[in-house]
Design a protein around this nucleic acid. Structure first.
Length: 447
DNA sequence: TATTGGTTGTGTAT
DNA sequence: ATACACAACCAATA
């Protein structure tokens, strides 16, 4: 099809943004070869990330920074990120294209090559769920501007202080727009910088809004430089953990019937609205993996990939590695409680009542642990636990302590393996491809 | 080799 | 509100 289009549309140059996701790299390589074979010139540029991730990696000596601080140090050496390109206008095109010409292809364009309608895809609007976050660049820019107007809010933004279970999002929800290229990360970065420059006092990375863009950069950079980034096996930065396989537990988690109202509310919001707060992702990710169910983070990654509007290959993999304490984050003894965590910002359980309406008549005292309510209270609430709403799938207090020990064992094994492979004849490749840089070889001490 | 810091833990004490 | 125990991780740095 491409060769025909090149010919029909008299294409001489193809331009696109570099996409470093493994699937996209393969696809774009194939497209580039095809274009060149048709004598079509190809121009590609980095603009999806603040910096060229490959350059960042080579600046760091050939391997990606594994800590945020290290990334910050490297980026400071690299200077400010490139400014966003100017908006494309018709003047850019007028040289090459006659916009009001009457060539036949223009009439046929929509019919032949236009975006298919929902009906043509055999869908209707109900299949799409509530349209809380309509797509497109106009929507993205107006959403961004709406938040940028709140300069005080921008300057005081601290991510860890935002709430996972507010009834309206406590963060900007610009992530789906950034993911789909409706909003340039560089545009957002420099619009924020303008505001910071006009104010003496403002929060800083990692907690600030700039900091959030740097977290994105962190996972992109780490992922580009790490083999098998979205898997445990063959991933050199990922602690190898003997996760269980338990389809019932996995289904209970993914279908919002773990019996823990906070977890089930989050999974319901994810399923129905396609977006949940970052800290809500923490709570359910910890629950699925090292905290409670002891299931592989790769299973959670698949569910998020399917349900999140902002699902982004690098960020999804990177954050699952983080939350499961498989990479980047290693304090596995810090476990989120499916009962306590949500209470900090929603004592009454209004969030739970919204997304798990069966529980809406429970008193606040029991809303996070309805199985502890006396039978009379359950009856009065019109919801018998074990009948109308599930009993907890596991006992968090017991299982989380067991799991901490299992994590400790996995880490101990990892350490052993490192000592062993340090002198192994086939050391693990940390990079996808080795960068040629002067490697100083220290004489090894013998034992 | 030892030390330091790590976006976002919890429960109990002051 | 803030401090500490819990049990003690890692990567980067000095």
């Amino acid at each position: 099809m491409m060769p025909e289009l090149f010919k029909d549309w008299k294409i001489t140059t193809l331009t696109f943004e570099i996409d470093t996701e493994p699937y996209a790299m393969q696809r774009d390589d194939a497209i580039e070869k095809l274009a060149k074979s048709c004598n079509v010139n190809v121009i590609k540029r980095v603009s999806h990330t603040l910096y060229d991730t490959e350059k960042t990696i080579s600046k760091n000596g050939g391997s990606p920074p594994l800590t945020y601080q290290r990334l910050q140090t490297v980026l400071k050496e690299m200077g400010a990120p490139p400014k966003p390109s100017n908006t494309l206008t018709s003047s850019h095109l007028s040289v090459h294209v006659c916009l009001d010409c009457t060539t036949p292809w223009k009439e046929e364009f929509d019919e032949k090559y236009g975006v298919p309608t929902l009906a043509e895809l055999g869908k209707n609007e109900e299949d799409c769920g509530p349209l809380l976050f309509p797509g497109g660049e106009m929507e993205a820019l107006s959403r961004m501007e709406r938040y940028l107007k709140k300069t005080n809010w921008i300057c005081k933004f601290e991510k860890p202080q935002t709430e996972p279970n507010s009834l309206e999002p406590s963060t900007t929800v610009l992530s789906p727009y950034i993911k789909f290229g409706c909003l340039s990360v560089r545009t957002f970065y420099y619009r924020l910088l303008d505001i910071y420059n006009l104010n003496k006092v403002y929060t800083k990375p990692p907690v600030s809004l700039h900091g959030q863009l740097l977290w994105r950069e962190f996972f992109y950079t780490a992922g580009v430089g790490t083999a098998n980034f979205n898997r445990m096996e063959g991933n050199p930065v990922c602690t190898q953990v003997p996760w269980d396989s338990n389809p019932e537990y996995l289904a209970a988690w993914s279908e919002a019937r773990t019996g823990y109202p906070f977890i089930d509310a989050i999974m319901t919001q994810l399923r129905t609205e396609g977006w949940i707060h970052h800290l809500a992702r923490h709570a359910v990710a910890c629950f699925l993996t090292r905290g409670d169910l002891w299931l592989s983070w790769e299973e959670g990654q698949k569910v998020f990939e399917e349900l999140l509007l902002d699902a982004d290959w690098y960020l999804n993999a990177g954050n699952w590695l983080w939350l499961s304490a498989s990479a980047f984050f290693h304090q596995y003894f810090r476990v989120y409680s499916p009962v306590a965590f949500g209470k900090k910002t929603d004592k009454n359980g209004d969030y739970i009542k919204k997304y798990v309406p069966k529980l809406r008549k429970f008193p606040a005292q029991y809303i996070y642990e309805p199985w502890k309510a006396p039978k009379s209270v359950q009856a009065a609430a019109g919801c018998i636990i074990g009948q109308d709403y599930p009993k907890p799938v596991v006992d968090h207090d017991t299982i989380s302590k067991v799991n901490i020990k299992r994590m400790a064992a996995a880490y101990a094994k990892r350490k052993e393996g490192q000592d062993f492979s340090g002198k192994s004849a086939s050391p693990q490749k940390r990079r996808k491809e080795s960068t040629d840089s002067s490697s100083k070889k220290k004489p090894k001490k013998d034992d």
